[in-house]
Amino acid sequence: MTVAAKICGLTDAAAVAAAVENGAAYVGFVFYGPSPRNISPEKAAALTASVPNSVQKVGLFVDPSDDLIRQVLAALPLDLIQLHGSEPPERVRDIKKTFGLPVMKAIKIDSAASIADASPYEGVADMLLFDAKEPKTMKNALPGGNGLTFDWTLLADAKIKSRWMLAGGLNAENIAEAVRISGAHIVDTSSGVEIEPGRKDPAAIKTFLMATQAIETQKQVET
């Protein structure tokens, strides 16, 4: 099994370089003002100028207007639009049609029942991303990147027809177990490779990516 990895919430050149040089399949940039990882389209364009075409550039948006998406795309080409808000399937479909790009929709998980929230997006979104749902009691909670995990066994037997990505509190220490339990083939981390919110640690990025590659090697050896 090959495990691909996305490093999200990148804000500086050293972190982008660490992601690319150590084998990230996706690099993610946040275009959401309240997030400490928010970045301007112009800065994101500068950071992605040297990213090879083999690495997919992802823009994360939260209930965005068409104008915001248009502003970002005018500055840099994205390979994938990630929607991390409360966008209904109709909005996902509309964004795909308007901008001609694949869309990944985040689904917040806190129970077995919340897995069913993915169903209306299957056949609409090109990919799904399963993330931990922030508790109502959590202060200053963000739509994502809160460093929270969820019960990965909820995905183990779920009949998900779409391609999907696992997120939520993933780091080098727990990634092997998360993949083993959930069956994920693609994983996403942000807070798990940070010194503080919005400030990535290049060494932690390298360690995380090495850990995902070790899972791949182990699976290949076992087969």
Rank of each mutant, 00 (worst) to 15 (best):
F61Q: 01
R180K: 11
D63H: 12
S111R: 12
D94C: 01
T48S: 03
A203W: 00
Q82C: 02
M165Q: 06
G144F: 14
A45S: 05
S86D: 12
A211R: 09
I205G: 05
L154A: 15
A132Q: 02
I195V: 13
L73W: 07
A44L: 11
A24W: 01
A125P: 08
P64G: 04
V179A: 06
V124L: 04
I115L: 10
A106D: 00
T48Q: 01
D63Y: 05
F61Y: 10
R37M: 15
A118D: 09
S54A: 12
I175M: 14
I81L: 12
K96D: 00
G145P: 09
S114D: 13
Q220P: 03
K200V: 03
I107A: 07
F130Q: 01
L68C: 08
D117S: 14
D157S: 12
E21T: 14
E87S: 05
L155G: 04
R37E: 03
N174W: 08
D131E: 07
A5H: 02
T149C: 11
L129T: 04
N146Q: 09
A106P: 01
A24V: 03
R180P: 02
N146S: 10
A24F: 05
M104L: 12
A5E: 02
A15L: 03
F29T: 04
T153D: 15
T217I: 11
P143C: 07
N140V: 14
L47D: 00
A5Q: 01
D94P: 03
V51P: 02
T149M: 09
N38K: 09
P120H: 01
A17N: 07
A176G: 09
I195A: 13
A112H: 14
P89Q: 00
A25G: 13
Y32H: 15
E177L: 01
Q71G: 02
S182P: 05
I181G: 04
E21G: 12
G59H: 04
K219C: 05
K200Q: 03
I181M: 07
P34Q: 05
E122G: 09
A75D: 06
H185K: 13
A156T: 10
G85P: 09
E87K: 02
A158V: 04
F99K: 00
I69Y: 04
D63S: 06
D63G: 10
V221H: 11
V20I: 06
A13R: 15
P102K: 08
T11W: 14
K139S: 10
T217Y: 15
H84I: 10
L155F: 00
A14T: 11
A14W: 11
D117P: 08
N171G: 07
R91P: 15
A113K: 13
L68S: 08
L101I: 00
E21M: 14
E216M: 07
T207C: 13
S190V: 11
W152G: 09
D67G: 13
E222W: 08
P135A: 10
A116G: 14
M1Q: 06
G100W: 04
P135R: 11
S50G: 07
I215C: 10
A158Y: 02
L78D: 05
N171K: 06
S86G: 13
I7H: 01
K57F: 03
I175N: 10
A45V: 02
Y121R: 04
A184P: 04
A17S: 15
E122P: 09
A4I: 15
I186W: 00
I205F: 11
A204V: 11
R163I: 14
G28L: 06
K6E: 01
A18Y: 00
M104P: 12
